[in-house]
Amino acid sequence: MCVVGNASYDGYVLALSTVEALLMNNRMTFIERYHDNEDHGNKNRVISGLIPDASGHLGPSVFSENTLFTWVSDGRGITPSLPFSYGVVSYSTLGSIVLNIDDENGKNGNFARHFVIHNENPQNVYGQWEDLPYNKGWDGGFSFWENTGYQIAIR
């Protein structure tokens, strides 16, 4: 579940490295979901060959005492022919895998926002962050409320 350059995914993939928007399509959408994880006895960790830097950054996603997932879609909706299977938060079909995250119950500071990059030419990249409303139901493979849900489809 990670960004591969010049590929379209028919959904959102997790950004675990730098995203070069200019190498992708003319329009990209980023969704950030901040998880206010457990405040007491927090045992978050990353087990991977990819190691976050000292502040927890692994590309635009952050893994520290709290978690920031950055999801990316190029919006073309064309499934690439990659030589391996991969997971996406699917906006076109219901995912067969559901991840539910039980976020902090006390002072829950979760937020979700999105940013659409418009890239008509390399000198004119623009867009702005906009907050996403709480949504207890499913919208494009995401459920954002006090807790979080992701519907994952395997491609």
Rank of each mutant, 00 (worst) to 15 (best):
F142S: 00
D102R: 12
S64A: 11
Y12Q: 01
Y150I: 05
K107M: 11
S48A: 10
F142R: 00
N26S: 13
A7V: 06
D53E: 15
E104N: 10
G109P: 04
T70C: 08
S96V: 05
Y150W: 06
F144Q: 01
V125H: 05
L14I: 06
F115G: 03
L22H: 13
S55T: 10
Y12D: 00
Y134A: 14
Y34K: 08
M24F: 14
F84Q: 14
T18S: 10
F144K: 01
G75E: 07
G77L: 09
T93I: 04
A153S: 10
H35C: 13
D39A: 06
N42L: 15
Q123K: 07
Q128A: 11
V3R: 00
E130T: 07
G41H: 15
N100E: 06
D36Y: 04
S92N: 10
A21N: 13
I47D: 13
G56E: 02
G75S: 11
K107N: 08
N110D: 08
I78M: 06
S64L: 09
G75N: 10
Y126R: 08
Y34E: 05
N100M: 15
H35N: 15
A153N: 03
N110I: 03
E146T: 15
R33P: 03
Y150V: 03
A15S: 10
G49L: 10
V72G: 00
R113F: 08
V13H: 00
K43E: 12
W138A: 04
I47V: 10
F69L: 10
